[in-house]
Design a protein around this nucleic acid. Structure first.
Length: 843
DNA sequence: TGCTCCCGCCAGCAG
DNA sequence: CTGCTGGCGGGAGCA
């Protein structure tokens, strides 16, 4: 079977997809799906599908193309005359019926792949009726074709937090083809994403990907707007009514001075120059508007739970539609669509609210919260919220079990905010959630970007696997507590303390040597978070700061990660045995080469505003400042921060110093493994931590990765270490024995695995292995991500990844492209199609 | 049986 | 006028 698979792929593309299947995780098959889809689609797609212009696709990052599916399609169309393709063509031509079926198969391809890669590949080769029948049998379930799943695949294609310099253009055609769905479906996704500013329309059939940078702001704005519009009251009103009677009297719902004008208000908010429209205009009913309103409901709700019927009623009321059952039904359908996308974004999760009359479908907000008050940056918010969510999930689980029989459907107003969970259906819980299958690919893409940006020297192999696909948490896009972590080359190491520490090691000062930007991160500035933040990102504006730190700590607690790092004989100050890293605030790390630092510093400061995809910009501020813990105490939370220059989208990884339960985990064999809770932080977030710059740990091997001992004290092989520092990151063995095994044993498998980062969850463990043979002679042949456009190991890398992989900072910055880009964004003037949510909101 | 929500028709509107 | 967008609701999968 495998042979067939490979053959087929070969026919279609030069790439070596074969490996993709090997790693099928079922939960993380997005990449493969895309690939396969192409295969599928190509034959059948003489479709209106205008030849996809690759250049359009990644206008700004041509280097990436090797991966874009579009190319494949084109290619295929251009040279379809492979035996298989030929046969398909003939069959298709022979019978419309068959063609139709073929088409359907194509649509399902992604899902099927997910299900069973091998089977899939087999089928592809088969052309006979039997094959067709087989396809029918293989037909994915409705669930598998859900918009949510599709959305995940969509999201998997782009980094959650793209670099400022990274400008990604989304071609609806290409995406549709890649994902094997009709464009119509993509519109649904894009519309919702646009409502949250994750994307924006650049031109016809073209969208720009912004990522989640401005999400916090957008949400803040929506929350504010929701409050202004008294959505909470409306919700309470409807909910109360629900309690009393099921009657749905739309006419009566108007209240609180809420008026149609408010609808307009939303529109205006979104698009200042938006022409006034009638309440019933088409655009008023747009999915974007609905999405915004839907989100607003969550944001203003104390319980953070919104039932679809209530949301639908409110929406109908606002739209002034005739309140008939049909409208209601339609509204609910749309809400499901929106909810699916939001769920994929890990902003909400499905739950059920039990009432007198039975269970009611509802969704619970699990995204960032309190941004309005905290004012912390988006990253922090997300981290914090995620941590909270994580905890809550646990609570929910227990609660659900304990209260399974209870019925609770209190009006939002009556609920205690502190007690978030109303009775939730057991099935809604993590692990068992129907959405479990939804894997967050964001991580995956982020890693790609990250890897690609590793310092010049740094080559990183990232291997990660979703521990438990079932974990809803894994859905969290980025900065998840459990994200497979990562990090890497050319970085600087710092010991960060959960709280402010006066006593900074002298060394920290020494660090000041770095350019001003980086120096800011150091001690002196530590306390003054705001200033630091500013410097770090010029754009950022100081805002409320707060819980970031606190939250971060929580996150950290929530999601311990297993880290396996190349051990490096340390000699200096504090050695960095795993333990040390773990608990000692004093632990010192290798001093990274200056040059290595510089990149890091630049990365931090360099988060330049991305003119492009930044609708509202990353102005979001991140100001973690509050340090609640007493500075003097041994920090409960001590972190080892590995700063990434450019990688990881500028995020830094924090390893908890205090928790190193599984310190050395020989699990993977010869690698020293260190289980360290860690989290990824955006550069700005670091400002909240006092930084202790640790003296370089003399490591003989530092420059020679190969020399790393297989076991023993763990040292982070970092950037400074030299180009050789290749890290392999994967899930901890403990989490997923299987994964661990793979990581340590079969290089081949590793590659593919590395690509499946999507599901990474809070529980994910990251294993960093030195790639060099030195690692205990580990056959660790991880995928090496290179900055260079040239794919190192195409086989192991999936196309989508490549997109980001091969992007080089330099290429991204192409002036011409930028210009073009700018123009494009401007062209987006079409008021009707644009929804502008001031991400600058609070301002 | 009711909840979900896929699917694709077809109208609005931009280019 | 073309074709991109996306509202809309029938109807089928699923629990």
């Amino acid at each position: 079977m495998e042979v067939n698979c490979l053959t087929l792929k070969d026919l279609i593309s030069p790439r070596q997809p074969g490996l993709d299947f090997a790693v099928e995780d079922g939960e993380n098959a997005q990449k493969e799906n895309i690939f396969v889809d192409l295969l599928r689609m190509a034959p059948k797609t003489p479709i209106k599908n205008e030849p996809i212009d690759l250049s359009k696709q990644k206008i700004f990052t041509p280097e990436r193309n090797p991966i874009t599916p579009v190319k494949l399609v084109d290619r295929q169309q251009a040279e379809p005359w492979t035996p298989t393709a030929n046969l398909k063509m003939l069959i298709s031509a022979a019978s419309p019926d068959i063609r139709d079926r073929e088409k359907k198969k194509g649509l399902f391809r992604p899902i099927e792949n997910k299900e069973d890669a091998l089977t899939d590949s087999l089928q592809l080769d088969v052309v006979g009726d039997s094959a067709v029948d087989e396809f029918e049998k293989q037909r994915p379930s409705r669930k598998q074709k859900s918009l949510g799943l599709l959305c995940q695949k969509f999201l998997a294609r782009y980094p959650s937090y793209p670099l400022s310099t990274e400008k990604t253009t989304i071609s609806l055609d290409e995406v549709a083809v890649s994902l094997g769905v009709e464009r119509r479906r993509i519109y649904d996704i894009v519309n919702v994403l646009e409502s949250l500013h994750l994307v924006s329309r650049v031109a016809k059939n073209q969208y720009g990907w912004h990522g989640r940078h401005s999400l916090p702001k957008t949400l803040r704005n929506l929350q504010r707007l929701g409050e202004e519009q008294k959505y909470e009251e409306q919700m309470a009103h409807f909910q109360q009514k629900e309690l009393d009677l099921m009657d749905y009297k739309l006419g009566e719902h108007k209240k609180d001075g809420y008026s149609d004008s408010q609808d307009q208000q939303l529109l205006d908010f979104s698009e200042p120059d938006y022409p006034s429209s009638s309440a019933n205009s088409r655009k008023d009913k747009s999915l974007r508007i609905m999405s915004q309103k839907f989100v607003m409901l969550f944001l203003v709700s104390k319980t953070k739970i919104v039932t679809l019927d209530v949301a639908a009623k409110i929406l109908i009321e606002e739209s002034q539609d005739t309140p008939d059952h049909s409208k209601f039904k339609t509204k609910v359908r749309r809400l499901y669509d929106i909810a699916n996308v939001l769920t994929s974004l890990a902003l909400i999760k499905k739950v059920h609210v039990t009432e007198e009359r039975g269970r009611k479908p509802a969704f619970k907000w699990i995204g960032p919260v309190d941004f309005s008050s905290s004012g912390s940056d988006g990253y922090s918010l997300e981290i914090g919220s995620l941590a909270a969510v994580y905890r809550q999930k646990i609570e929910d689980n227990s609660q659900a079990k304990a209260c399974a029989s209870k019925r609770v459907t209190p009006p939002s107003s009556s609920l205690d905010p502190a007690a978030p969970s109303p009775v939730l259906s057991a099935d809604s819980e993590y692990g068992v959630t129907p959405l479990a299958h939804q894997v967050f690919s964001v991580t995956h893409t982020d890693l790609q970007a990250f890897s690609m940006q590793n310092g010049p020297n740094g080559q990183v192999g990232v291997v990660s696997r979703a521990p438990a696909a079932s974990d809803v948490e894994s859905l969290q896009p980025a900065l998840l507590a459990g994200q497979p972590l990562v990090y890497v080359p050319s970085t600087s190491l710092f010991m960060l303390y959960g709280r402010l520490q006066e006593q900074l090691s002298p060394g920290s000062r020494a660090t000041s040597e770095r350019d001003s930007r980086s120096s800011e991160v150091t001690a002196a500035e530590q306390s003054s978070t705001p200033s630091v933040q500013k410097r770090l990102s010029e754009e950022r504006k100081p805002q409320e700061e707060e819980p970031a730190t606190k939250r971060q700590s929580r996150v950290y607690e929530d999601g311990p990660l297993s880290l396996v790092i190349p051990k490096k004989p340390s000699d200096s100050t504090d050695m960095a045995p795993p333990e040390t890293v773990g608990d000692g605030g004093s632990a010192s790390l290798d001093d990274l080469p200056r040059n290595g630092e510089r990149p890091a510093a630049e990365a931090l400061s360099g988060r330049a505003p991305s003119a492009w995809g930044n609708p509202s910009g990353r102005t979001e501020t991140e100001k973690p400042s509050e340090e609640k813990d007493s500075p003097t105490e041994p920090p409960l939370l001590q972190y080892l921060c590995v700063q990434s220059p450019a990688g990881l989208n500028g995020f830094s990884v924090l390893f908890s110093g205090s928790q190193i339960p599984h310190a050395v985990g020989p699990s993977s064999g010869q690698l020293s493994s260190l289980s360290v809770p860690c989290m990824v932080l955006p550069p700005p977030a670091l400002g909240s931590f006092p930084v202790l710059y640790s003296p370089p740990m003399p490591r003989p091997l530092s420059s020679a990765p190969g020399a790393l001992p297989n076991s023993g004290p763990v040292n982070l092989g970092l950037p400074g270490l030299g180009s050789a520092a290749h890290l392999l990151i994967g899930p901890a063995a403990m989490v997923n024995p299987k994964s661990s095994t793979l990581s340590s044993t079969d290089p081949q498998l590793q590659g593919p695995l590395s690509l499946n980062l999507s599901p990474v969850m809070s529980r994910a463990h990251a294993i960093i292995q030195p790639e060099s043979p030195a690692c205990g002679g580990h056959p660790v042949s991880t995928v090496q991500l290179q900055q260079s456009p040239a794919p190192v190991t195409p086989k192991s890398i999936r196309r989508t990844h490549r997109e980001t992989f091969f992007k080089t900072p330099g290429s991204l910055g192409d002036p011409v492209l930028r210009r073009r880009e700018r123009n494009q964004s401007r062209n987006t003037s079409s008021a009707q199609r644009r929804l502008e949510i001031p991400s600058s909101g609070a301002d």
